[in-house]
Design a protein around this nucleic acid. Structure first.
Length: 436
DNA sequence: TCTACTACCACGTTTGAAACGG
DNA sequence: ACCGTTTCAAACGTGGTAGTAG
């Protein structure tokens, strides 16, 4: 059913203090499923691209998850960050992505905190959790708390669930981390793959103006069909399939259901042209406990089987209105067309003044040195209230992804337990909390 | 010349205060 | 006065495109 390959080298028995606790058991039952997996897969098959801009750009598709198995009355914090898929920089050449060299040093790592956090498990489970407001930027000096990425690099989002009563106790809490392989993407400043552009136009409501039907005046040739749900895919070939090398014959999932047996090869292991080419709706699940420095310590393996009730296609998710505030800005563009003038609304921001809630964590750790990390929390509940500190955000290089593994029978890759207060539970920056 | 990036544009959607009606 | 619905415009999100830098 499931196997764990290539997780972490230093697996060992979990500390009993952690393994035996009721929380540990309950946390092990947490299930996380990705909403709109077919849409994600559609993009993934082509090689998802996400636009990054200086002012910040939303993701599309955006991250939306369903949670189950939380303790209803316990409070949780949800976080998302982006980690490089591999250590390469890419370029688009002749209709396919090619490795263009070594990855640039990583910018300060930031983590997006879901605006509802902290909230009880019942809150997270009663409806899908959307990270719609998450924005990506290539501005390393960004002051808005957006997640900073490098263009032409590949990333994938990680979801972190932390049982904690408040933001300040995160460092003492247990993290559980999940990823969805089909959410990996290439950060770009302009779309390279025209098929991706078409797909975005077709499915993103904000891009309706570029569809052929309607009032599109730009002559963009796109499919007219509005929805991806009820039609066969007009695209067929993954851009990643264009990669030569070991993954060229990577098995593709035959259909949306059924047991998958493809092998997910992490980038570094599959040569220089590393992008994962297969879709991976179902994944293995492992957990790990409080890490010893620089090592994962998987505790046990869960076999969750199929997700309990995967989101139904076409199901209109309940509209979620978060407390996310709008960052007041004078006018977005210089030459925007004039608006009709009337008594101008004095729109109060829907939330207290401030900024998107983003944790900024920069790793100071170097090989063999537990890092003292800085992180910056932007909270909508107060203007620029850093709950942490910046500290020495020197450029760091992400490690190769260890977590992308083989057989999948559960919705998400579950990376397991780790404590937020341990600086080097892994090489990833997120958990380099030192203080809040 | 090529590639990556930016600024601007014109479109559409979202949002919430104001207006309105019961 | 209260509550629910509708209206409407500012704010925002989107991809295209031209221009620029290296």
């Amino acid at each position: 059913m499931q196997s764990i390959r290539d997780l972490k080298p230093n697996f060992g028995p979990p500390p009993q203090s952690m393994a035996a606790g009721p929380d540990a058991y309950m946390q092990g039952n947490i299930r996380l499923t990705l909403e709109d997996p077919d849409l994600w897969k559609s993009f993934h098959d082509l090689g998802t691209e996400m636009i990054i801009t200086k002012p910040g750009r939303r993701m599309f598709p955006h991250c939306k998850i369903n949670l189950a198995g939380l303790i209803p009355c316990a409070k949780y914090i949800l976080l998302v960050d982006m980690v490089p898929v591999d250590g390469f920089r890419y370029k688009w050449n002749k209709e396919k992505w090619e490795v263009a060299g070594k990855a640039e040093p990583q910018p300060p790592c930031r983590t997006y905190l879901h605006p509802d956090s902290p909230a009880p498990g019942s809150h997270w489970m009663k409806q899908s959790v959307s990270f719609l407001k998450l924005k990506l930027t290539n501005n390393t000096l960004d002051q808005h708390g957006h997640i900073i990425l490098h263009s032409m690099h590949r990333y994938h989002p990680r979801f972190h669930i932390v049982q904690a009563d408040d933001l300040f106790s995160v460092r003492w809490s247990v993290f559980q981390t999940f990823t969805f392989p089909e959410t990996s993407f290439t950060a770009v400043t302009a779309y390279q793959n025209t098929s991706i552009t078409k797909l975005k136009i077709d499915h993103n409501p904000f891009a309706k103006g570029f569809r052929e039907e309607g009032t599109n005046k730009k002559g963009v040739q796109t499919r007219v069909q509005p929805a991806w749900r009820n039609e066969p895919r007009y695209f067929c070939r993954s851009a990643y399939e264009a990669y030569d090398g070991e993954e060229g014959d990577m098995p593709k999932r035959k259909e949306a259901e059924g047991i998958k047996q493809e092998h997910y090869s992490p980038g570094p292991q599959s040569g220089s042209t590393s992008p994962p080419g297969a879709d991976h709706r179902d994944v293995y699940n492992t957990e790990q406990l409080v890490p010893a420095p620089a090592s994962y310590q998987p505790q046990r393996v869960h076999d969750f089987g199929k997700p309990p009730s995967p989101p139904q296609r076409g199901q209109q998710p309940q509209r979620v209105r978060t407390q996310q505030l709008r960052v007041p800005s004078p006018r977005r563009r210089h030459g925007a067309r004039p608006r009709r003038l009337k008594a101008p609304h004095t729109r109060a921001p829907p939330g207290p003044p401030g900024l998107p809630r983003v944790l900024n964590m920069s790793m100071a750790h170097q090989a063999g040195k537990p890092g003292v990390i800085g992180h910056h929390l932007y909270s909508p509940y107060g203007p620029e209230q850093p709950l942490g500190q910046w500290s020495n955000p020197g450029p760091t290089q992400y490690p190769p992804p260890h977590h992308l593994t083989a057989d999948y029978t559960t919705p998400a890759v579950h990376h397991g337990y780790h404590h937020g207060n341990v600086a080097e539970w892994s090489q990833y920056p997120l958990f380099s909390y030192s203080c809040w």
